[in-house]
């Protein structure tokens, strides 16, 4: 046991775990808000606009998640030393959440492929 007080890992390292589910939530909020706004516009453009927005927002969210996963995998290539146990744990937890969030993004977007925008 060390007698000195060691420098500590910043709390931001923990907050990074939340990035992937936050991306899912942002995606979810954007597609929902987009439909609400599109539906007060001219009916002729509604379906096309919703389709494009869904594609763009989903592509952006998935790109963000893929970049996140790639960074996590790359930082994991160097085997963690014993003192980095916490970091390895946080990284693997983040990876699992990234995977789950990606599933959530795809699953939430699916209805836009089969349902018309603004129909009651």
């Amino acid at each position: 046991m060390s007698a000195a007080i060691k420098p500590v890992r910043p709390f931001g390292d923990f907050l990074r775990v939340l990035i992937a589910p936050a991306i899912w939530f942002a995606h979810f909020s954007l597609v929902y808000a987009a439909e609400a706004l599109i539906c007060i516009g001219p009916p002729a453009d509604q379906a096309t606009m919703m389709g494009w927005i869904a594609v763009l927002v989903t592509a952006a969210a998935l790109t963000g998640l893929i970049i996140l996963a790639a960074r996590l995998l790359r930082s994991g290539n160097t085997a963690p030393s014993r003192s980095d146990r916490s970091e390895a744990w946080l990284r693997r937890t983040s990876l699992l959440l990234t995977l789950l969030s990606a599933l959530g993004v795809v699953w939430t977007t699916l209805p836009t492929a089969v349902l018309p925008a603004c129909a009651l």
Binding site: Y32, C39, G104, W107, T108, L110, P111, L115, C118, L120
Partner: peptide
């Protein structure tokens, strides 16, 4: 609108995971 409902329906099912 039905599409909005579907977003929430999908999320409601996803939380089961």
């Amino acid at each position: 609108p039905a599409l909005s409902l579907s977003f929430f329906s999908a999320a409601s099912m996803a939380v089961a995971l």
